[in-house]
Simulated assay, not measured.
Amino acid sequence: MDPLARALLTAACVAALLALARRFGQRLAGWLTGLPIVTLPALGWLALDRGAGFAATAAAGCVAAGAGCALFGIGYAWASRHRAPAAALATGALAAALPLPWWSQAAMPLPVALPFALLSSLLACACGIAALRVPGAAATRPRTVPGSLVLSAGTAGLVSGAVSWAAGELGAFWSGVCASAPLVAAVLAVRLHREGGSPAATLFLRGYLDGIAGRSCLVALFALLAARAAVHP
C-alpha cells in the first residue's frame, strides 16, 4: 500500500474510533481498534504488489505481533492506574517489545511459524482479558477537547505512513510485524487516559484485547488462503 494512502486510511480510522469512543463507549472503540481494519487492506495490497507468498509470510508476522499488542494493552492499563499517560505509554511500549527475542519464527517455514504465532497471540490476549476484567471503577464519559480528534488522527496517520514506507525494506515477516504495531491503540489510549482517566483507558484496552484475538484468527485465515493461492495460482 502506498505510504500516503495508508496514512490517510489510518487517520480516517482513528477519527472514526475517537468519535465512536465518545458516542458509544471506550469498550467498543477498543474492540474495533483491535480488529484488522487497517491490517487486512495492507495485506491485500502486499498480495497484489509482491505476490501471495509474500503476503502469507507478512500475515504470519501480523499474527505474531498480536502478542506484543496484547502486552502493550496490559502494560499500559497496569501503569495507568498510578502513572501519567507518558509513563504509561513507555511501560506499554516496553511490554510490547518483550516478545522480540522470541520472534525467531521469521526463519521458520510458514506451517510452523503460523501456529506458533497464533498460539502466542491468543495466550497473551487471554492473560490480558483475565487481568483487565475488573478496571477498578466505572469509566467517565470523555470530555471533548478542541482539536483532539484531528491531532490524534493526524499523528497516527503520519506515524503509520512512515512505518509503512520503511517496512518494505525489512522483508515479508518483519513487514507484517511493523504493520501491526499498536500505534493507533497507543494514540487512542493516551487520549482517553488524559480525558477520562485510567478507567476510560482500561475499558478501551479491555475491548482492544478482545479485538486482537479476533484479528489474530482472521489474519491467520488470510495467511492460509494466501499460502494456498501461492501454491495453486
Rank of each mutant, 00 (worst) to 15 (best):
R27A: 15
G30Y: 08
L32I: 01
L32T: 00
T33R: 04
T33C: 14
G34I: 02
L35I: 08
I37F: 14
T39W: 02
T39N: 03
P41A: 09
A42Y: 14
L43D: 00
W45Q: 13
L46W: 06
L46V: 15
A47N: 00
L48T: 02
D49L: 11
R50A: 08
R50E: 12
A52G: 00
A56L: 04
A56I: 01
A60E: 05
G61T: 06
G61M: 07
A64D: 02
A65L: 05
G66R: 08
G68S: 09
C69H: 07
L71G: 09
L71I: 09
L71H: 03
G73P: 05
I74S: 03
G75W: 11
Y76A: 08
S80K: 00
R83G: 02
A87C: 02
L89P: 11
T91S: 14
G92S: 07
A93N: 03
A93K: 00
L94I: 10
A95G: 03
A96N: 13
A96D: 12
A97R: 13
A97W: 08
L98M: 13
P99H: 13
P101Q: 12
P101S: 06
P101W: 04
M108G: 05
L110I: 01
P111V: 07
P111A: 05
V112I: 06
V112E: 15
A113E: 09
P115E: 08
L118H: 11
S120Y: 07
S120L: 10
S121W: 08
L123I: 13
C125W: 09
C125I: 01
C125H: 10
A126S: 15
C127H: 08
A131T: 12
V134S: 14
A138P: 01
